[in-house]
Amino acid sequence: MKKLLSIIVLLLISSVIFAQAAQPVEMAEGMFQSGKIYVVVTVLSVIFLGITGYLISIDRKISKMEKELEKK
């Protein structure tokens, strides 16, 4: 029984290994395409996102100041 179980387990493991060898791993390939232009686009988008976030925070601070001035 033990022998049979170990054989099945080993078979399963080998089949898993086999499957991995047969198929190339595919992950987010868009970012790795030959020109890698998507990386630049992502970087610029992040920079712009950061700048916009900064603008929003300044906008909110000024709104707060305006409200405080109106109260007094």
Binding site: V41, L49, D59
Partner: peptide, 18 residues
């Protein structure tokens, strides 16, 4: 209009390169 500004410029960055 601030949202439009953000969306349009972000669109420009993405579409402008691709």
């Amino acid at each position: 209009w601030k949202i439009i500004a953000f969306v349009f410029v972000l669109y420009t960055i993405i579409a402008g390169f691709l």
